[in-house]
Design a protein around this nucleic acid. Structure first.
Length: 620
DNA sequence: GGGTCCGGGATCG
DNA sequence: TTCCACGATCCCGGACCC
């Protein structure tokens, strides 16, 4: 769902009388004008939300957070007031230099398209139950709403709003529970359409995607707007759902543009510097991804920055008070810059789960929760063949205070028994306490060191692929031993790989060898092994839904072809090098990372096949 | 003084 | 009647260590 559905505004309406209106200062996130929210009685919404929240633990916590933010603003104001003229001129020079540098990096050669499905979950539910059409409806529960249809939005109901408040705003509101299977199915259909325009597209979520349509525009001699029209039409034909699109020279702007003519509309920002600067000049900072409620308030209250243009005007102050990376982000927004290269395939950094319950001090209950969470986390890690080293316990107290407690272990763990053991230790130190949420997070995965090659996308070897498939079976991790992944991988028989010669047969052989620990056999097992969650390629991370049968077959073939090519080149090297050594080389090979270099890969292609490069996200 | 870890916070969908 | 989720990422400041 669009993040901007959670926008904030503490708009103060005109004071016609002097009656106290405490709700006006309650900085909720539900009152910003959004698609389908025009004409909403903002004050009424704000008053109801305030009345329903007032006095609750949640409300008290919000007030604490608010007070903290006020203090932060006060500190920054003081800091600002203490700046000397020499300081300011110094930071002005720093800012000007950086702005000039950034401006030279502007790339207007690409055309990006951001697609955003309209009220996606709600639209899917209406599709499967047409009787919901025209009635105010929300997907979610009494505790939280995922999205609301446009009829419900007229009442001020929106995403991330608790259901009990929503039903107060709209007593006839129909609640439909979330059904991710359904959304994934429709999401797959949309992605099949996206794939036709950019096989390398990036899915931002089930209902959002970024497409580089530069090539399509060129090849078919179409404008970005024409491609967007056609794509939206095709999405509608494929799913019966409408979407909105934004076309712009970079992803950041495309995202902003897709929100402008929502729902079922589009907006094109031409690849022209003047047009961009004009567009940016009046754009409220809150429209930018990455600038949320807090940052907006700080920029507004400390610097009087409201629009993106203001970010440039006040650049010296931003460089004086923020970290260099934050200041740089702000001025690049002011210049209308954003990502133009396809984003990197990123390896997973952490995995977590958490559960909310009614607040309690019952330690037996906590332990039971920890058992459940440990088992869930362990199972999730097993699915992706991960072992982690840092375990973080997350707690939310009855008063909504969030605490995290982490420990980094000597070795990697995965079993629920190990997770539970350490999680219990962490929790014990916090007792007694009244809690409403417990969560567990694992990070610092063995993959960080190149365990399955994902951390360095330039090193995608079939060997690693097979290893990740093979290692799906449970290994008992002995904490005293070294990195479990090494022993694990040593079980792989390189011979099986090196002796392969026919693509299709090879895949079968690999499947068979990988299927030993898997009851499945035949082609379906290949998908479950090569495709994580039956969706994401374990080798390179590209996402291809199950419906892409042919594409997935081709994709597997390419990895094989690539592997074979590599094998030919250095068969002996592969056999002789220790795995640890190879991982070191991968790390060394990653020096180009962040230097803007791209490693070109060329694979055997024919007219029927999608070039292998198309499956790999380019590195920037 | 520069890495690394930890805890908190902001943001997103 | 119901009474503010969950999973993930990035960033920052402080503590600690060499």
């Amino acid at each position: 769902m669009a993040k901007s559905e959670q926008s904030s505004s503490s708009s103060s309406s005109s004071m016609v009388d002097s009656a106290p209106r405490p709700w006006e200062s309650y900085n909720t996130v539900y009152t910003n004008a959004k698609a389908g929210m025009e004409g909403v009685d903002k004050e009424k919404v704000q008053r109801i939300v305030y009345e329903m929240s007032k006095g609750s633990k949640y409300f008290e916590n919000e007030e604490r957070k608010e007070a903290y933010m006020k203090q932060k603003i006060e500190n920054m104001r003081n800091h600002l007031a203490n700046l000397k003229a020499t300081d300011i001129s110094h930071y002005q020079r720093v800012a000007d230099k950086r702005i000039a540098e950034l401006d030279t990096t502007r790339d207007l050669s690409r055309i990006w398209l951001h697609v955003d499905m309209d009220a996606f979950y709600a639209a899917v539910e209406t599709l499967s139950n047409p009787s919901l059409k025209g009635k105010p409806m929300a997907v979610g529960s009494m505790s939280m709403i995922s999205t609301a249809n446009y009829e419900a939005r007229k009442f001020g109901v929106r995403a991330a709003m608790p259901g009990f408040i929503a039903s107060k705003l709209c007593p006839d509101l129909i609640f439909v529970p979330t059904d991710f299977k359904k959304y994934t199915y429709y999401s797959d259909l949309t992605r099949k359409v996206y794939h036709e325009y950019d096989p390398n597209f990036t899915a931002a979520s089930l209902d959002e995607a970024y497409l580089d349509i530069t090539k399509v525009c060129k090849e078919r001699d179409l404008s970005g707007g024409e491609v967007a029209e056609e794509l939206r039409e095709n999405v509608y034909k494929a799913t019966g759902l409408t979407c909105s699109a934004g076309v712009a020279p970079n992803r950041l702007l495309a995202k902003v543009c897709s929100d402008i003519n929502k729902p079922n509309g589009q907006f094109v920002l031409p690849n022209d510097r003047v047009a961009i600067m004009t567009f940016i000049s009046s754009l409220p900072i809150r429209k930018i991804g990455g600038i949320g409620k807090v940052t907006e308030t700080i920029l507004k209250d400390v610097f009087e920055i409201k629009t993106c243009e203001d970010l440039l005007q006040k650049s010296s102050l931003l460089f004086a008070l923020f970290s260099p990376s934050s200041a740089e982000f702000f001025v690049s927004v002011g210049l209308g810059l954003g990502g133009t290269e396809a984003p990197n395939v990123r390896s997973r950094k952490s995995m977590s789960n958490e559960r909310t319950f009614s607040a309690t001090k019952d330690e037996a209950f906590f332990n039971q929760k920890l058992v459940e969470l440990s088992e869930m986390l362990s199972a999730d890690m097993e699915k992706e063949d991960l072992h982690g080293k840092t375990l973080t316990l997350k707690l939310k107290t009855a008063s909504f205070e969030v605490r995290t407690r982490a420990m980094t272990l000597q070795s990697y763990i995965r079993s629920s028994k190990d997770i539970l053991k350490h999680a219990s230790k962490l929790l014990k130190a916090e007792l007694p306490v009244s809690l409403r949420l417990i969560g567990l997070r694992m990070s610092h995965f063995n993959e960080d060191k190149g365990g399955s090659g994902v951390s360095d996308p330039t090193q995608r070897t079939l060997l690693n692929f097979i290893k990740s498939g093979e290692s799906n079976k449970e290994t008992v991790v002995d904490e005293e031993n070294s990195d479990p992944c090494f022993e694990h991988f040593s079980e792989i028989d390189d011979q099986n790989i090196c002796s392969l010669n026919d693509d299709h047969e090879n895949l079968q052989v690999i499947e068979t060898c990988c299927s030993d620990n898997n009851n499945e056999t035949g082609p379906s097992s290949s998908s479950s092994l090569m495709w994580l969650d039956d969706y994401k390629c374990l080798v390179c991370g590209i996402e291809l839904p199950p419906s892409f049968v042919e594409e997935r077959q081709e994709h597997s073939d390419f990895h094989l072809a690539q592997k074979l090519q590599q094998e030919e080149e250095s068969e002996q090297t592969y056999k002789n090098l220790s795995f640890k050594h190879r991982m070191m080389s991968q790390k060394d090979g990653g020096v180009e990372k962040g230097k803007g270099k791209k490693k070109q890969k060329h694979a055997v292609t024919n007219g029927d096949h999608i070039p292998i490069d198309a499956f790999f996200t380019k590195r920037s």
